[in-house]
Amino acid sequence: MSLSPSPPQSPSSATNTEYGLTGGPRWYQRRIRIFGPFLAMIVPGLVGAAGYVALQMSEAAWSGTFGTAASYFAAPALLAIGGPLAEAGLKPLAIGASALMWLFAGLLAARRATRNPFATWGDFWRHYTWMLFGIWVGVMMALAIASAWIGPELLDLI
């Protein structure tokens, strides 16, 4: 028996977890770190879905151009294998590598956001947006270099 006073047990003690108070800063940081990498897949997933729908929707030139460009933004590793000219067996590997890259970008954004003890989802999305646009600028630069290297025939191939 201890002589020091202890706080009374209250029914609200059920909200305690091993990671701190539910809804507290540590609990919130942990949620950002766990779910952040998976939420980072939303934007490229939506862009990739839009590109796939555009490619399947019509045979028009705009559909092919938009669908191919959207697929590059969703899966940047497609550029490394040669895009539409690549062997069909390499495309799932490139898409998988891109998914891992997006998961890693989400992991980095979550880690950077939770350096602040009172991190919010807004902090996560701010860090992730910078990474997203950095990757997309790299995709645009790669497309510009490929366009200059191959020339106007690149558009005819797509």
Score class of each variant (00 low, 15 high):
residue 81 I to T: 09
residue 137 V to Q: 05
residue 19 Y to E: 10
residue 17 T to H: 05
residue 20 G to A: 07
residue 61 A to T: 14
residue 150 I to R: 14
residue 17 T to L: 13
residue 114 T to G: 08
residue 9 Q to Y: 08
residue 106 G to Q: 06
residue 150 I to Q: 14
residue 3 L to H: 12
residue 12 S to Q: 13
residue 10 S to P: 00
residue 67 G to R: 05
residue 83 G to F: 00
residue 81 I to M: 06
residue 103 L to C: 05
residue 140 M to V: 14
residue 32 I to F: 01
residue 26 R to Q: 08
residue 115 R to T: 12
residue 5 P to A: 11
residue 85 L to F: 03
residue 81 I to S: 03
residue 158 I to R: 05
residue 16 N to K: 10
residue 102 W to R: 04
residue 113 A to C: 10
residue 143 L to Q: 12
residue 147 S to N: 11
residue 30 R to S: 02
residue 143 L to I: 11
residue 11 P to T: 06
residue 67 G to E: 04
residue 58 S to M: 07
residue 128 Y to V: 00
residue 81 I to P: 00
residue 20 G to C: 10
residue 158 I to T: 11
residue 77 A to N: 05
residue 102 W to H: 09
residue 151 G to W: 04
residue 34 I to N: 09
residue 127 H to I: 01
residue 109 A to K: 05
residue 143 L to P: 00
residue 144 A to K: 07
residue 139 V to D: 09
residue 138 G to E: 12
residue 12 S to H: 10
residue 7 P to K: 12
residue 40 A to H: 05
residue 59 E to V: 02
residue 56 Q to V: 05
residue 104 F to Q: 10
residue 112 R to G: 07
residue 11 P to S: 07
residue 122 G to T: 14
residue 29 Q to F: 00
residue 103 L to H: 04
residue 121 W to D: 03
residue 96 G to Y: 01
residue 25 P to R: 10
residue 1 M to H: 13
residue 154 L to F: 15
residue 155 L to E: 09
residue 150 I to W: 04
residue 108 L to I: 12
residue 101 M to C: 07
residue 4 S to T: 13
residue 78 L to N: 02
residue 40 A to M: 06
residue 106 G to L: 01
residue 11 P to Y: 07
residue 95 I to R: 04
residue 67 G to A: 05
residue 21 L to V: 04
residue 36 G to C: 08
residue 87 E to A: 11
residue 152 P to W: 10
residue 104 F to G: 05
residue 55 L to D: 09
residue 122 G to Y: 13
residue 120 T to W: 02
residue 30 R to F: 00
residue 82 G to P: 06
residue 2 S to Y: 04
residue 88 A to Q: 12
residue 112 R to W: 15
residue 3 L to W: 08
residue 60 A to V: 03
residue 42 I to P: 07
residue 129 T to R: 14
residue 111 R to V: 10
residue 116 N to A: 11
residue 2 S to T: 15
residue 135 I to R: 00
residue 87 E to K: 14
residue 110 A to I: 04
residue 152 P to G: 15
residue 34 I to H: 10
residue 118 F to W: 09
residue 137 V to F: 15
residue 108 L to T: 10
residue 77 A to Y: 13
residue 16 N to S: 07
residue 148 A to Y: 03
residue 44 P to D: 06
residue 67 G to V: 03
